[in-house]
Design a protein around this nucleic acid. Structure first.
Lengths: 207, 207, 207, 207
DNA sequence: AATGAATGAGAATTCATTCAT
DNA sequence: AATGAATGAATTCTCATTCAT
């Protein structure tokens, strides 16, 4: 009585559904996307999807977790070979300047922002999002900045926590605008400009 | 059959509905809010609302227009007495640092961000939003910055268009995060930090 | 701004829906009956039904209340002119011997028994049913019997509470069997026999 | 391809499934119970269950048969050593007064009553139930009572068929009420009282 | 024989919109 | 103009049954 399908198979299916959901959510938004949309995109049956997820909400939640986990796994990996904080911060900016400027990337942004907005209205999700924000986004960058200060790369008056917060605010805000304005938004130049301004600040500020 | 009620009356009613819609959308989000929510909040009947608006979509659209018009009308008025670009830019930052940090303000942010996200997915809305962004947000601030450069307040290498874009990106991104994280997000300090960094840049950058 | 429709209108509609539900539940059973069945029978739209009731459960509950209330209102009224307990008890039996032996009456029984069975499995319903049983069915008849004892109609050793409980048990059990067996079940004769046995007991028992 | 497993094995499995179904139906009711419930309780796979039964309906039907067969096999066995009708009738009452008053017994009642109600709505089942009722419940007891009359234990005017019908009506009705009211229903005393009343009737009635 | 993943018809419920009053 | 009851398409989720392995 061995299991009918392997765990890998099931994990693959689960991922496929999440990818389809991601596509649907990106295209139409979470609220508006229907299970039938996911059915169409994935080619699976409705029942199959409910074998892997408890509800639309659950799909949303797991997708949200997967996305942020993936993002940070990628960043972690890249950071491995890097020594200076400058290098790391530049890399973080480059993640956004090097993103292919295509509809897929725009959808990805929309879904990301929707995670934020949706979370803001449901206590449980909100808690989760706050944790994720603090533990991943914020602490992560704060440590990099502090490291930079300790190593003398950045000026000691720069307040790493605030700058880290600001960094992610900038990223999300600029991405949001890009996802709406599209082509005519000088997305990459603006990120570049942000990078320039931030580095300029980190290295010359004195008080 | 001449109109039985005055135009003022009708305009007042229209505004009341929009205010109620704003409250509902802020609380629950546009998609999730129902006409019945607006009925509850406004105290009007469903039929009455449909006398003033063609559809839920229409309410949304008109609300979006009203909000951005209001915002800029306010800013215009304030700018009237101001001479320097520095003063004006500082004022713009102050709009956000002085916003009362309460649920109402958070709701207001959410609705605003939702305007963006929703627009990104409907061509008609998107065009409208791009126009609005270019003509109001972007040009407006770009002119202020250019003015500042011309008057020698800011360094001439600062690229007013990019900085203007960045400014609004920062504002929306930081507000977005604040609307989710809430209390524990050092919202005002972060805006202050952004202000510090931007001004530092505008005044010291050389290339 | 008078109400669009009168309260009587609404009450009439509500009753109509309950009647339709009663028909559906009688025909197919509560669990199996669908809202669409009620739609078909009532000729109303699905939405209309949900304007009057919160859920299928709610319809069920209100129907249950209505039925037992109606039953007892009828009995109360009949009792008004009666003096002896014997007369009253005979009337109670007659309610069941005089019921028209048609499918409608059988359906009515099925719904009634289903109320009991369904209640037994949901704590909230169960509480409600127990209350209803104690306050209406049980106490009601117990009082009649006690009255009979006090007036010397029935023997004093007969334990009114147990006999009252037994009476309703007999009624429900015999009705249940009738609803299944149908034509070939000597329903009325059996009730008559029960009446005979009970009265024989009440009047001759000595210990 | 000779059978790989023995018939006993298959019969054992079949019984196991029926027992699990009985548990599920008792807990939640037939309509509400799912195949997955039976899977959980039995520990078998869905496919295995469908190897032994054609459908949920089929499980229900076979369970119904098994239960009544079991009941009567037990009674038959007990009757073997009994001579008088009085003894036999007392035994029948004792089956119900000696039933352990626990949730399991209550569930057993519910399933039994559901058999009746469900049967009343499906012609095929109904025929089956009528046969079973006539051949087992009714004739069985009728014969006992007739025997009692013949032997002079009971009065000759007592109409064995009607009393037999009444007996089962009482049992089912009282059990039904017990299964809903639970603790606070004087179940055993009520059955005792029924016994007292019936015997009083059978022995003293004259016309 | 056993497994349990897949299927998809069917159920309850919601809600934007209409329209008779 | 205002009212709110009525409509029914659309949505989420369930579950008996099948079938490849």
């Amino acid at each position: 009585m061995p299991p009918i399908v392997s765990d890998e198979y099931k994990e693959k299916k689960r991922k496929e559904i999440l990818e389809s959901a991601f596509e649907a959510f990106g295209e139409k938004g979470f609220q508006i996307s229907t299970i039938d949309d996911i059915v169409s995109i994935s080619g699976m049956s409705k029942g199959a999807i409910y074998n892997y997820f408890e509800s639309k909400e659950d799909i949303y939640l797991q997708l949200m977790n997967m996305r942020t986990d993936q993002d940070f796994a990628k960043i972690d990996k890249q950071f491995e070979g890097m020594k200076t904080a400058t290098e790391k911060l530049m890399y973080l900016f480059s993640v956004y300047t090097k993103a292919e400027s295509n509809p897929k990337w725009q959808n990805s942004i929309r879904v990301h922002i929707e995670f934020w907005i949706t979370s803001s209205r449901q206590e449980e999700l909100q808690k989760l999002m706050i944790d994720r924000y603090n533990q991943k986004y914020l602490s992560y960058l704060e440590n990099v900045l502090q490291e930079g200060i300790n190593r003398g790369e950045f000026h000691e008056n720069c307040d790493p926590r605030l700058v880290a917060s600001l960094f992610w605010g900038i990223i999300d805000g600029v991405c949001l605008h890009y996802s709406v304005i599209g082509e005519h938004y000088a997305y990459k130049e603006i990120i570049k400009k942000a990078e320039e301004i931030i580095f300029h600040y980190l290295m010359t500020i004195k008080e």
